[in-house]
């Protein structure tokens, strides 16, 4: 008698929440289109099991100050546009970004220490130059983050941008700014399921609706903690599917930041020959970090290299087909 095989489907009680970034004219903003992420009612790409209403999207990272410290591989790929954030953002649009991730690096005390008013101008002009939804990152220094992100949130009022990063010991100011101006806040935790959930809860306890929170469980690059991110993201997704409302936020991964920090992507001299071709290595590093985390449940991937964008988009096409 032939054996019969039934598709092994698991029953889930929950789904990832949908979060929309960007607001068009109809919604009180000026974006040309909006991007909705999340919504999966199954593990990544298991189409046989549950609905996957939105594909993962790619945010291309741009900076408001020329990133002289970036790898030559990146700098040569982008060329001159890195000197002008507006041109850079426009080129990112041309490359097919779904979202522009604007890093306000110039507000960092070590790279210009620009104040909130200058930053407000930058944000306004980027909003004017491109019509994609925006993610805005502060310089990563708590006091400066709070100072400039509040102004950024104000000038972007109504545009439904995502603002980050909110961390366990510095979230109240940013959440309040998002609440007041209709934005989405990004909750970051240090590769820890529990702390991620705690920051999500604390932010939601401030009254921020759950469909205005993205979570960033911290990305470990390939070879530098990728497995921890992978497992934390799997656990968060499982918990979301099991119905835990406080882990159902879509996930955003800062792939570019981490992958290009890896020695493999940064160092061309004095490394083993078996590492292969330096010119290609960084891109592969970024690509593999991205596609691996895609399979762990990433909804938004923040990338740096145009070729990685291309590779990852192809991978998403294949996974979503």
């Amino acid at each position: 008698m032939p054996v019969t095989v039934q598709t092994p489907v698991e029953k889930w009680n929950g789904a990832v929440r949908e979060v929309t970034l960007g607001a068009t004219k109809a919604d009180g903003g000026t974006r040309g289109r909006t991007v909705t992420v999340g919504g999966s009612a199954t593990l990544p790409f298991l189409h046989f099991e549950g609905a996957i209403p939105n594909r993962p999207v790619i945010a291309i990272q741009v900076q408001d100050i020329d990133p002289l410290d970036w790898s030559p591989t990146l700098r040569s790929a982008w060329g001159d546009v890195t000197k002008d954030v507006l041109k850079w953002a426009a080129k990112a649009v041309d490359l097919g970004a779904d979202i522009i991730a604007l890093n306000l690096r110039s507000a960092h005390p070590d790279s210009g220490n620009r104040g909130p008013e200058e930053i407000a101008e930058t944000v306004k002009s980027v909003l004017g130059a491109v019509d994609l939804p925006l993610i805005i990152y502060g310089p990563g220094v708590p006091e400066k983050d709070n100072e400039v992100l509040v102004r950024a949130a104000e000038v972007a009022a109504g545009e439904r941008v995502a603002i980050g990063l909110c961390e366990q010991n510095n979230y109240r100011t940013i959440v309040a700014a998002c609440l007041a101006n209709g934005h989405v806040a990004i909750a970051r935790a240090p590769i820890d399921v529990n702390i991620q959930k705690q920051i999500n809860i604390l932010m939601s306890d401030m009254g921020l609706p759950l469909d205005r929170i993205l979570m960033d469980p911290t990305t470990g690059a390939l070879g530098y903690g990728l497995e921890y991110s992978f497992s934390v993201m799997e656990r968060l997704r499982l918990s979301a599917l099991q119905g835990d409302g406080m882990t159902q936020m879509p996930t955003i991964c800062t792939i570019g930041d981490e992958a290009w920090r890896a020695k493999e992507a940064k160092v061309s001299q004095g490394v083993p020959e078996v590492w292969g071709d330096f010119a290609k290595r960084g891109v592969v590093w970024e690509t593999i970090t991205a596609t691996t985390l895609l399979n762990a449940g990433a909804d938004i991937l923040v990338l740096r290299h145009p070729q990685a964008v291309e590779n990852v988009r192809k991978a998403i096409d294949q996974l979503i087909a």
Binding site: G223, E227, V274, W275, R281, V284, W285, T292
Partner: peptide, 15 residues
């Protein structure tokens, strides 16, 4: 291709 093999072996070790 070492450039492509190396990241795969790294990933395997990670996972």
């Amino acid at each position: 291709d070492p450039t492509l093999i190396y990241p795969l072996l790294t990933l395997r070790q990670n996972i």
